[in-house]
């Protein structure tokens, strides 16, 4: 029990932050989503969301593709393989320690 509890100290802190955890959990169950969808789901402000997306991208957890749909700019976000693996590991540690 103690060993499992101590695993919590090794949690990935980049994902552990609540806003980034919401982003990762939202993107984990989809192939890709645009900025507006993420904003709606997480209820973060544009600036806050951009900042957290940039941090996840910097760590290689996230890919951001800036494109256009017709004349409308579109920012598509998707988790990378590294991001998915990290989220799975985070989820596993949390479940094993708490449940």
């Amino acid at each position: 029990m103690r060993k499992r509890l101590l695993q919590l100290a090794d949690l990935d802190r980049l994902i552990h932050e609540p806003a980034r955890l919401m982003i990762a959990a939202t993107l984990y169950v989809v192939k890709e989503a645009d900025f507006l969808y993420l904003q709606r789901q997480t209820e973060l402000t544009k600036g806050n969301l951009s900042c957290h997306l940039a941090k996840l991208e910097e760590a290689g957890y996230l890919e951001i593709e800036k494109t256009y749909r017709g004349k409308i700019p579109l920012t598509l976000c998707r988790l990378t393989k590294k991001g998915r693996t990290s989220f799975q590991a985070y989820e596993a540690v949390l479940k094993s320690a708490l449940f």
Binding site: V29, V30, K31, A33, D34, L36, Y37, L38, L76
Partner: peptide, 16 residues
């Protein structure tokens, strides 16, 4: 959808 749905609630593509 590109005109009335995505501009309101965003676009998401379900995974495999």
């Amino acid at each position: 959808r590109e005109r009335i749905t995505y501009p309101r609630i965003g676009y998401v593509s379900p995974g495999e």
